[in-house]
Computed example of a mutant assay.
Amino acid sequence: MTGAGGHLRRVALVVAACALLAEPALAHGVAESDKAYIQSHPGIHVIPFLYLGAKHMVTGYDHLLFLFGVIFFLYRLKDIWTYVTLFALGHSATLLLGVMANIHANPFVVDAIIGLSVVYKAMDNLGAFRTWFGWEPNPKAAVLIFGFFHGFGLATKLQDLVVSRDGLFANLVSFNIGVETGQFLALCVILIGMTLWRRTANFGRSVVVANTLLATAGIVLIGFQLTGYAMERLA
């Protein structure tokens, strides 16, 4: 029989896996094989960038953790669509602007803020802001603003791939379409899992633990990124 303890163990395993992945990947990393291929083939390459965008989103644990937190208490498809659209608009805007305008920022700092977005959403789900401060941030504005940082995190890594501006805009659009496709597929899987979980008696009893684990994963991500930033400064 599957009980609350069994489900929470699965959640803990997911969080632990995300934490273990954070060290080698350092959030938003681009595989060396993908990087080598893109840099050795300048010009317009729609399919490779579509693939790279989809792959990045499906394997992007920081994105997925944030989306998990965003839809945690959303039951209507209309509300899910609204929040996911705000997130997509935010990360699409800064992805395109960051690369096209060649706007640089330290990727460790940006990724630390992305980790903060995961912590924020977990705390918001727990009602912490209302309890501690008597107010809470506008959730839609927060998702849009953090979407800007998620997109800029993508931009900081894609800038490393740019060896020629020939076909850059077309490649970026292809990458972004891939990201949205990957996001849709990942969201479908998350929604199926969440729907099944919500139908059990365990959901209400495990809300606090699940969001505490989510916040812990965000803190781990922040710690890795700030450690990377400190090591970079000392090098």
Rank of each mutant, 00 (worst) to 15 (best):
L86W: 08
W81A: 09
D166I: 00
L158N: 07
L89W: 03
R198T: 03
L187E: 01
A36H: 14
L158E: 04
L67Y: 03
A142K: 03
P42I: 00
L126G: 05
A155R: 06
I38K: 01
G6F: 06
Q159C: 07
P42N: 00
F108S: 09
V14Y: 13
F203G: 01
F129Y: 15
L144T: 06
L191V: 12
D124G: 02
V46M: 04
A230M: 14
N102Y: 13
I47F: 15
A19S: 14
T227H: 15
W132G: 01
D62H: 10
D62G: 08
L95V: 05
V119E: 02
E232Q: 15
L77I: 02
A17S: 15
R76F: 11
C18A: 14
I222E: 08
G115C: 09
L21P: 07
G3N: 14
Q159Y: 08
D160N: 15
T195S: 10
L20H: 09
T156W: 12
L168M: 03
A25E: 10
N102T: 11
I222K: 11
N211K: 03
V163L: 10
T212W: 08
Y120C: 02
V209A: 14
L126F: 11
V209S: 09
L74W: 06
T156V: 13
G127R: 06
V15N: 00
F133R: 07
H91D: 02
L168A: 04
I114T: 06
H45D: 12
T2M: 14
E32Q: 14
A22H: 05
E136Y: 07
N176R: 04
L95R: 01
G167Y: 07
V30Q: 07
K140M: 09
G43M: 02
F203W: 14
K55M: 07
G204D: 08
S92M: 01
G5W: 12
A22Y: 03
Y37Q: 01
A235Y: 14
I38D: 01
P42A: 00
L213P: 09
R76D: 14
N106Y: 11
Y83G: 00
G147N: 02
D79G: 04
F87Q: 00
V119A: 05
F133L: 12
G60S: 11
Q39C: 04
K121P: 03
T85N: 06
F73Y: 12
T156R: 10
R10L: 13
P139K: 05
Q225Y: 10
W135Y: 13
R9S: 12
F184I: 07
I103D: 11
A230Y: 15
K157N: 15
N102C: 06
A210T: 13
A27I: 15
G3I: 03
A122P: 10
F169M: 07
V15Q: 01
S40Y: 09
F224T: 05
L65A: 13
T2N: 10
M231V: 12
A88V: 06
G5R: 12
V118L: 05
L172E: 02
P24K: 05
A210P: 10
A54S: 11
F66H: 02
A128V: 14
V46P: 05
N106Q: 13
S174H: 07
A93V: 09
I145Y: 08
P24D: 05
V173A: 12
T216L: 15
E23Y: 15
A170L: 12
G60K: 05
V99R: 03
L8F: 10
A16K: 02
L50G: 03
E180H: 13
W135P: 08
